[in-house]
Write a protein that binds this DNA or RNA. Structure first.
Lengths: 336, 336
DNA sequence: GTGAAAGCGCTAACAT
DNA sequence: ATGTTAGCGCTTTCAC
């Protein structure tokens, strides 16, 4: 007893014309008599006609829908990117379907699959940390679905990319710490699987080298979540007396380590300076306020959407893949 | 030159059988010869066959897709709800399309429209603050698309609802402040348009009444975002000397007002106690750590999804609409 | 200026 | 056990 939505055929029947006439009238086809057009439009809006996106998509092989996959929506950085994407997409008449992978490889595959099954016109994705192989992405590529990576990407998958200048960011913030007098700087790093993690670590190492400070494996800990910071508590407290700064791969670890050190009686930044990366809202709430690297999430999202739409609307021109590197800004606050 | 995805017809042609046989074989229809079934399955997976969700949806009037609309994804509470929804939905073979309204009425309408156009099987929505009329929701209802509201809802729209016990929450936290000695408590309230705002205000008023404290219009300010707190700076500082507590309608305003008061030299909670609502992650990061009301976002999302799926899978049984009220917990920290 | 017919990919009566 | 046919809602060529 479901109230079936009105279709073009219903309108045609009601008005005593053919379905094709209705279809044309609705799209303001020039051939159609002005009066017929009026009648169709009037009736359509009277009965609240809405085209069935499924049928249109099936017919056109085009859905005006973009698929987004992010690791976790909760992160402010990712939600800013999403807002940026939506901003551009809506302006051009596209809708978005978004999914989260929860940093899970399998979930990412499932999502990608589902989006392609739904015939999205293009994909915007930031791969999960646990994404080991690239089969699903190659499959998408093979299915000719335009793909743009943002923030994170798989090097083995040729595609457009929109990323932060992680290397420079890490270098700048580490240099800032060195200028403030730090000499023994611990780095809480991300897994080196993704480029982001490696670049931030590289930037840190380069800054040390720039200033003739010797790096040490001991001073690099894989610790990119508050949870892992807690798990590494003993190790960190053991290192603490011998260090004067910590550069964390993201703001969440930074906040966690600040808390941990404060509980252990350390003065931040007095005894140990701490910096993060990302400029999450918590960075300006934690005490001391966190010195960190600002990333342009919203703008990155806009750019990613622009690149994708350009690919979609120019499928024939196989332009070279581009990598847009977004510059970063050092936000000096109180923690370093 | 787009590599068209393989269809059932392609398989049929390749294997020299009819499309219906392929369709049946793929769905393991009992009538189909075991050997034929094997061949079809083998070939399908060899060529990476995937059913076209558009075609299936068009045929079945069923997409196994749920539509979600939230005001802002950035809020931890909403993203937790989304995760809860996804958790249940994925388990039952449904995917989700989510949209944000950015607290904008028009965007909400557009999103709702788009989701219905895409023939989602059901809708989960938390209306925007600016949603004045309910036409779009009534339209959805009329189109027989099952709808569940979460956290916020429009009273004029009959539907299942999953909400927080806002009244009790506000009452509990206000009572806590009173027990701690507060007598002149300011309430930073939300607009009274949505139930949430009204209930939290009511809870505050009831707590006052319970303890024989007289309420005063002067002590209720419409101020539900950090931005509005900043805008009301002068007013707040003017009231500050005469109050000993502030109950904020959410944690964001609470954090903002703490900052404002601290800058003005007030001791929190020494001179003025401050409480929030929601238990956002920032609540445990701000100094002093915020005493607030914990809401079960993830569980609310799960429940909302369960209600919706029940409606979808039992369209015939027109069970009465339910309102699930989730209990809250007081999180006592340092700010009150 | 309008209609008839075919087809997008899939399924389900209804044959055989 | 398998094929034929029709149809979901829409667009578009081709006819008239």
């Amino acid at each position: 007893m479901r109230n079936h939505p009105v279709s073009i055929n219903d309108i045609a029947r009601a008005l005593g014309v053919s379905a094709s006439t209705v279809s044309r009238a609705l799209r303001d086809h020039p051939d159609i008599n002005a009066e017929t057009r009026q009648r169709v439009h009037a009736y359509a809006r009277e009965v609240n006609y809405r085209p069935n996106a499924l049928a249109v998509g099936l017919k056109h092989h085009r859905t005006f829908t973009l698929g987004i996959i992010v690791p976790e929506i909760v992160h402010h950085f990712f939600s800013s990117i999403i807002s940026g994407i939506e901003n551009i997409a809506y302006g051009k008449g596209y809708r978005v379907m978004m999914c989260q992978s929860n940093e899970d490889h399998e979930r990412e595959q499932l999502n990608l699959q589902a989006l392609i099954d739904h015939r999205v016109d293009g994909l915007l994705v930031s791969p999960s940390k646990t994404t080991a192989d690239d089969r699903h992405f190659r499959w998408a590529l093979n299915a000719q679905v335009p793909l743009v990576f943002f923030d994170r990407f798989l090097e083995s998958v040729p595609s457009d990319r929109v990323v932060t200048d992680d290397l420079q960011g890490a270098r700048i913030v580490t240099t800032h710490m060195i200028r403030r007098g730090c000499r023994r700087i611990l780095h809480l790093a991300a897994t080196q699987q993704l480029m982001v993690g490696r670049e931030r670590c590289q930037g840190y190492l380069q800054a040390l080298e720039d200033h003739g400070i010797e790096a040490s494996d001991e001073l690099i800990l894989l610790c990119d979540t508050p949870y892992k910071v807690e798990a590494a508590r003993d190790r960190i407290l053991q290192l603490a007396p011998g260090i004067d700064g910590i550069f964390c791969v993201n703001d969440f670890s930074a906040v966690a380590v600040i808390k941990l050190l404060q509980e252990a009686g350390y003065q931040i930044p007095g005894q140990i300076a701490v910096t993060g990366f990302g400029d999450d809202p918590i960075a300006s709430i934690v005490q001391p306020r966190l010195t960190t690297i600002e990333q342009k999430g919203y703008e990155m999202g806009q750019e990613a959407a622009r690149l994708l739409l350009a690919r979609i609307e120019n499928q024939e021109t196989e332009a070279d893949y581009q990598t847009k590197i977004f510059p970063v800004t050092l936000k000096v606050r109180d923690s370093a």
